[in-house]
Amino acid sequence: MPETRKGRALFAPLAAVLALAYPAAAAPAPQRVVSMNLCTDEMAMLIAAPGQLHSVSFLAADPISSVLAPEASRYKANHGQAEEIFLMQPDLVLAGTYTTGATVDLLRRLGIRVEQFAPENSFDDIRAGLRRMGEVLGQRQRAEDLVADLDRRLAAVKAGDHDGMTAAIYYANSYTSGSGTLIDDVMAKAGLTNIATKFGYAGMERLPLELLVLSDPDLLVTADRGYSAPALAQQGFDHPAFRAQAALSGAVDLASRYTICGAPFTAEAVRLLSQGADARKAAPK
């Protein structure tokens, strides 16, 4: 088989260059992975081969924040502290880019490989994040399957005819999500216009109750309502003005676990919003 040999000879230097440029791609797949961020927890649980993932953060087992809470009980829980993670002797640590910066620095100084993942702010980010996780864990095919699953689920949601319908998301402490956020993309995929984007908000910003009432959205989406322990943060949902507006708009309560982190299950949020918008259109104004 001269051709193959020739091909191998040709590609060998290229492979070496690639190995230098992308050590992750060439290194053998990690065998003892510890994740210390909810979003990397969920992605790793979806992608890792059996036995490859050793520990996930304690948040992964919280049914309010995590879609994969039942699965999380199969792994050891960690609390994102350098000492406990070091003692687990991982060959790879997965972390987020925003939190636990000091811990990540310390782990790297201790000689542990740490891969950081930025939060996903759009469905494109989700696809890129899944593929990178596949690369890092040496499970590219699994990652591609998940991306295909996401696209299939998105296509299955009939974006419907929601032309000109507006939606507002209202979190605890009267926060909302503007442009450049995952929920903004979720609304767009459901065929809705985000009123926070209309106000020129970018990222998470406070939406004063007055402005929410004034903007009179067609669909009022709430999140963060699932906690059983009381806090003032949720009092906004009981404010008489908010309740009056919720009665005027269509109302959808979106479990935050679908949108805190991006994954194929985020398509469920699109489906819920689209369904809410359909119901709103059918109801007499």
Binding site: Y227, S228, P230, A231, L232
Partner: peptide, 13 residues
């Protein structure tokens, strides 16, 4: 000590 993550932020209030 509250299990609600928002509670701790309300110390300021």
């Amino acid at each position: 000590l509250s299990s609600n993550p928002f509670a701790a932020l309300e110390i300021m209030f």
